[in-house]
């Protein structure tokens, strides 16, 4: 059976909120190392990958591999009943037809209990190769969201160019064009404001802004976002879920390529 206790319901609430417009139904795959999710959007252009390692929970117990087939709209309805600071416990049997969710207030004076019906989901899993990216940018997540939403007002697509001069986001549309350039920046007082750029070779790729703006719904999960680019491969946008390494919410986006 599965029993997983999260100290803050906020993490799961925000994860589901960030991905529910991209994917509708998905399996939460539970095993002794933690809970993982991998799902593509209907158009097979974007992929969501969530990893919550066992050490993100206390306690965590999962004796066998269990796939929890969840409709995210339904899960959202149940999670709405949890306060951000509630302790959240997930329970399921080995071959479950429902997922039990318990929300406890921090001072334990309120306990809510819900059962969510599960579904059989035949999910296509993709093997994501380990990639040494040519450019890695670590920046404030709200700043990345602002750049994407600002540029989407002008165009459907953005070209991201990484060079020794910095990272340049460029778009052009019917009303005109725009660009934003980021340079490496270290704020000694507040390192959450840092912009870190690692570059091994120049990169230029074009992406649909609609998806990038969608990924930025995860900005509430983490102060910083990591964006990884290499020529001719999908973009990776990654948010840390907890202070523990390995627990993250990742989005992959296929580029637009020449005909």
């Amino acid at each position: 059976m599965l029993e997983a206790r999260l100290d803050q319901a906020e993490i799961l609430k925000k994860v589901v909120d960030a991905i529910k417009d991209l994917v509708q139904d998905c399996n939460f795959d539970c095993n002794d190392s933690g809970i993982a999710l991998q799902a593509m959007d209907n158009s097979h252009v974007a992929l969501v990958s969530m990893n919550l390692q066992a050490d993100s929970f206390a306690p965590y117990r999962c004796d066998r591999n269990i796939a929890l087939g969840v409709n995210l709209t339904s899960l959202t309805k149940v999670l709405r009943a949890a306060q951000n600071t509630d302790i959240l416990t997930l329970r399921a049997l080995d071959a479950p037809d429902s997922l039990n969710l318990v929300f406890e207030s921090q001072d334990k004076d309120r306990i809510s209990e819900y059962d969510l019906k599960l579904m059989d989901i035949d999910q296509e899993h993709l093997g994501i190769p380990e990639t040494e990216y040519a450019a890695t940018i670590k920046m404030p997540s709200v700043e990345f969201r602002r750049i994407c939403t600002d540029l989407m007002a002008l165009s459907e697509s953005v070209t991201i160019e990484a060079s020794k001069d910095g990272i340049k986001f460029t778009c052009s549309g019917d009303i005109g064009n725009g660009s934003v350039t980021l340079r490496q920046h270290t704020n000694v007082e507040n390192e959450k404001e840092n912009i870190e750029i690692e570059l091994s070779e120049p990169v230029a790729l074009t992406f649909s802004l609609k998806y990038l703006v969608n990924f930025c719904k995860a900005a509430g999960l983490s102060n910083t976002v990591t964006i990884c680019l290499s020529n001719e491969v999908p973009l990776l946008v990654s948010y840390a879920l907890t202070s523990k390494a390995g627990s993250n919410l990742r989005f992959y986006l296929a580029p637009k390529i020449g005909d």
Partner: peptide
């Protein structure tokens, strides 16, 4: 002119 690629082009079946 650019065309939106799909992920299957880059990520294989595991």
């Amino acid at each position: 002119p650019t065309k939106q690629a799909t992920l299957g082009k880059f990520f294989g079946q595991p």
